[in-house]
Amino acid sequence: MPYVLVAAASCGLASLFFISSLTMQPAAYQMPRLLVALVFILTAAMLIDYAVQKRRKAAGQPLDEVAAPLFAPFFQGASIPRVAIFLGAVILYVVLLEPLGYFIVTPLFLLGTLLYLRACRLMVAAAIAAVAPVFVYFIFVWLLDLPVPMGIME
């Protein structure tokens, strides 16, 4: 099912790009339209391949190593709540980065995820959460003059 969803999403994107290209000049739409057609063709080929493998599986025929993963559960071997919570924490980190700033959000993110994942003891997690942001700041800002978002500490 996720495979079909990816195919549907890519067809959706290609359709959106095709519709947008209708108002463009020929020089601007030439390449995108070629690629839209290519994405449609390859998505169709992927779905046909999927259907063929599905029929083969239903008939009890052995699947090769390239086709077998298509029928494995999407989160096979992975803890769904852990992946979801970790990703949620990453999204929250990104959302809060600009308003609150690097020096507030990064230690909180590190401490929170390290404790949630039970990666290490509280004191070790606190030490990592305190030292890692300073180290990254040192490399990016002091050494290489690259920006980090400072938020309310601007």
Binding site: V90, T106, L110, T113, L114, C120, I128
Partner: peptide, 14 residues
């Protein structure tokens, strides 16, 4: 690995 992963995220974001 569980210590490395959050640090990778910080490096990706920054």
């Amino acid at each position: 690995n569980k210590i490395i992963a959050p640090v990778i995220i910080v490096l990706c974001v920054i």
